[in-house]
Each structure stands twice: as C-alpha cells, then as structure tokens.
Amino acid sequence: MHGYLPRQAQLVLSKALNRAPAALLLGPRQCGKSTLARQLLAERGDAVLLDLQDRSDRARLQEPELFFEAHRHELVCLDEIQLLPDFFSLLRAEIDRDRRPGRFLLLGSASGPLLRQSQESLAGRIAQVELTPFLLSEVAPAIRWQQLWLRGGFPESLLASADDDSIDWREDFIRTFLGRDIAALELGLPLPLMERLWRLLAHLQGQTLNASRLAGLLDLSSARLQKLLAALEHTFMLRRLPPLEANLSKRLVRSPKLYLRDSGLLHNLLGIESYDDLLAHPQAGESWEGFVIEQLIAAHPRWRPHFLRTGHGAELDLVLERGQRRRVYEIKLSKAPKLSRGFHELVEQLQPEQASLIAPVETSFEIRPGIWVQPPLEAGGSELRAAAPRG
C-alpha cells in the first residue's frame, strides 16, 4: 500500500553492527523486525538469514560450529532467537574466534530473558537496539497522526485497507499474544485471568499503580501481580513510567504510572472502533497521553523518562533526564490547551532546558515566554527538532 517505510532504527542498527560483533534487535512480535532485517541484509549483500521458527532453517544449525565456519565471512541473521535460549554460549565461543564487527544479527521478541542471556553470555560483544511499532516521524506525511493514534503502530494494523481489517488484526494479535507469547513464559495462570488483567490495565491507562487494589481485583498476591506486570513489560506491551526522584519542597507521588504502549491495542481492549468513538470515549485524554509519551521517549533514546506529581495534584506528564539536563512536557487533547498553575510552579522549581505542551494543533506557537505548544509530529521528531520549536 505504502511500499517500504524506512525505520529510524535501521541507521542505529547499522551503526551497532559496525562497532560490535553481534547486534540484538528487540521489539514486540509483528512490529517489523524481520522486514527491517531483510531490508538491511539486502543492502549489504553478504548475509544469510535463518528463521528459527522454520524447521528446515533450525536443522541447518544442527552442527553450529560447521555452519559458522562455512559462513564466517557473512553476516548471519538469526530470527526469533528466543526459541534457542541456550545458543548464546555457542555464539560467545564463535565470536571469540573472530571478533570482527557485524558478524551476527539476532532478532527477538521478549526482552527480559533475552537481555539476561545476552548480558551473561555476550557481555562486551553485543549491542542492543529496540524497534517499536511505527512512529509518527516514520510514517508522516504518508499517514496522518489521527490514523496512527487510532490504529496503533503495528504494520498490519496501521496499513490495513479498512478499519474493520485493522480491528480484526488487532483482535487476533491479542488472542495470539495471550495464548502463545504469555503462555510461553510459563507463568502458570489461566488465559481468562490474563485477559482480565489486560482489560483492567486498559481501563487504568495513565493512572498510578495501586498494586494492592489491582491484586485484590484479580485475587492475586502482590508479588504475583508484579511478576505479571514485569512479563508484560518484557514483551513490550506495558510501560511502567517511574516517578521522578526530585528534591522538591512538596510531597511527591511514588508509584509508577501505567500505560499500554500501543494505542491500537488499547483501543481494541476499550471497544473503540472509529475515530469518532475515540474522541467521545471518556479515556480519550489518557489514550492521547500514552500515544504522545511513546513518541517522545522514542525520539530521546538516551534520556531517562519519568513523570512528576505532587500530593496536591500538580503534575508534569513527562520529564526526560540526561545527566543534569531536563526537558518537561504537558500533554493535552485540546486545540486550545491551557497550562495549569501547578505546571508553572514545577517548571519554576525544576528549571528545565525545555518546557513544551503537546496538543493536536497544526503548527507550533509560544503560549508563554519559553513554553511552546507543539503538534504531535514534533513530539515524535528527532531530538534536534523537539528541542527547537518553530514559531
């Protein structure tokens, strides 16, 4: 429909392969990892790809040392590497025989176990790159932000020819994810309970976590709940946005905020089917907030994300930190957004290098001296674009 849409992660991945013997491309299932890898391999021309879900491809690794020897001067790409968790020790031995950059590209869908395995076995030998579903900066101007917000960034959902096809794909993804990906983590919970948890999380979008209350609703222990939330984080479905640790003369909220990371999956779980449904839904503001936060975090890969809320309700939706630098954001679903007094008070205390309000406006404008209102595309642009609003 739109042809191949370039991904921002491709340049990051190419740089990683130029400096490290192996690169691990992580991201949720169906977000485009294989497509990106095939594009990169086609441009290089000196590569071999094995899909570890394919029995014949797995058979080629029956004698891994012989396979590596035969392809030592090519980039070897192993897709769905989480299916062979014990393979990292073999990779370590092969890399130590020849530590040239760009020898292995590994693709995986579950970050927790993979990160642990790669850190333990390939420390100092592997670079990690995360691929998200499509970002607005990747699809604009071919696709409007309204469509990306409604359908989410998974390619099959976003690029579907009709809204009904997009909805059906997301429903299938939710069933497959719960029935296969979560089941593969062996958490020992029945499928209906996992589905109930996910739907509860959709209704808690943008709220601070009350672990004891949520555990009570599910009849689970708090420790069990935390394990489930960690599993959803490791599979890139959930973001727990931590509170900022700041020395302010106010009592601060200490619990993380919860966001389902893909807005399209969130909308399916909330029963939202059209853009009009979305605008009329009571959680439209929270959905918009989560959507924009994902764009901003992806645009600032070396910045640590937080939120800040005082006991009196003053809040900054997103605070990005890098060393001693800070950028703060308020997110409003309004064409005529207004800033609260609490926002100004917190900006005055934190003294960030940039303070912005992200809203569904067409062009940037200065709402107060030094504070800019920006459209969503600038929220998802590069660091330079985000740091330099246009009047």
Rank of each mutant, 00 (worst) to 15 (best):
A140H: 13
M237Y: 07
R99A: 13
E186Q: 15
L136F: 11
G311P: 03
L178V: 15
A314K: 07
L258C: 07
R58H: 05
Q354T: 08
L252A: 02
P85K: 05
S249T: 09
L296C: 02
W149L: 15
S212F: 10
E321M: 06
A387V: 02
D277S: 06
R309I: 08
D51G: 05
R19P: 02
K338G: 12
P282S: 13
E348A: 15
E362V: 10
L350C: 07
Q351H: 13
R199H: 14
V129D: 00
E289M: 10
F343Q: 02
A280T: 11
D262F: 03
P64I: 10
V76A: 00
N268P: 05
P133Q: 11
L201F: 07
A314F: 04
A298C: 08
W145T: 03
M237K: 00
E63V: 07
L278I: 10
G108H: 00
F87S: 06
F154T: 00
L106K: 04
W145C: 11
R341G: 11
L135P: 02
N268G: 06
L150P: 11
E362Q: 14
L114H: 02
R100S: 15
V361S: 03
Q39C: 08
E273Q: 14
L41W: 06
H344P: 01
V319A: 01
R175K: 11
C31W: 00
